[in-house]
Design a binder for these strands. Structure first.
Lengths: 145, 145
DNA sequence: TTACATGCAAATACTTTGCATATAA
DNA sequence: TTATATGCAAAGTATTTGCATGTAA
């Protein structure tokens, strides 16, 4: 039999309209993080879901580990589908000028964890790395001006 | 003549009571990031400074580059004295259990920037790295239980 | 049927803003 | 003196919560 992507089932969460809808939205663009407001608006297309329900849903999904939450300097929380276990850990670089993004194939931290453990005695359990820069196009633009 | 630490003068900002007080507070604990509320409370000891002034001051200091701002998952902004230029770039690891912290001597990103440029064409202009883990004490605790 | 999720409205929490006054330069 | 910073109160935005109702299991 064919395996299906069933995160709610796996986490023993009720399969409600709101949760399924939101997971569907996040799944369509796994590399992007959405604000609660964005999710709320996107839900509209499907069926109306209250903004408070969006927040409650995001809290549930975040606590269950299905979704990761990160705060940005604009003061809003952004949510993104968590990488399923076993997937390749990687990071993303975002262009500060045009917001284009690219994946970084590897993670510089993995090699460092052992070194940090011996230097500091700290055991690293998680990390977040945000890279900002200029994409090739914008780099060219900047050099021209 | 002796050089003095005079960030406000350097940045051509007026030397007001609020700014001097807040910089003094941040200077006493350069490795820690303070919420606006914490700064406001700490100011109390010296002289009353309005919370809105704290926020305005932090915006000014952040824009001038004297202070760095980062959002945490609790939804609050935290402010910390920026590393003066020329200081050694480094990162910090925080214990998720007791909040103890330690410095990481080096930055794993520097060595990687060239590699990322050739792999992706992106020029890295900045990065933020947050490490979370267990300090030696808490690691021992966890293993015991 | 029953525990849990949702909608709606009201409440909170953090941060910003308008305006009159105070202060640094 | 004059532009800029501050205090105070009010407003704004993001997020949470209480409660009656709806719904998945």
């Amino acid at each position: 039999m064919k395996k299906k992507y069933d995160p709610l089932g796996i986490k023993n969460l009720r399969k409600t309209k709101a949760r399924k809808t939101i997971i569907a939205i996040l799944s369509k663009d796994k590399d992007r993080a959405f604000s609660a407001e964005e999710l709320h608006t996107a839900c509209d297309a499907d069926l109306q879901i209250d903004l408070s329900t969006v927040y409650r849903t995001m809290n549930t999904l975040t606590e269950s580990g299905l979704v990761t939450k990160s705060m940005r300097d604009d003061g809003k929380a952004y949510f993104q589908l968590a990488e399923p276990q076993g997937s390749v850990h990687h990071h993303r670089i975002v262009c500060s000028r045009c917001k284009a993004s690219a994946d970084i194939a590897m993670c510089p931290l993995h090699n460092l964890e052992q070194q940090i453990l011996s230097e500091t005695g700290f055991l690293i359990t998680s990390h977040s790395l945000e890279l900002t820069g200029l994409c090739p196009d914008c780099k060219a633009e900047e050099e021209r001006s």
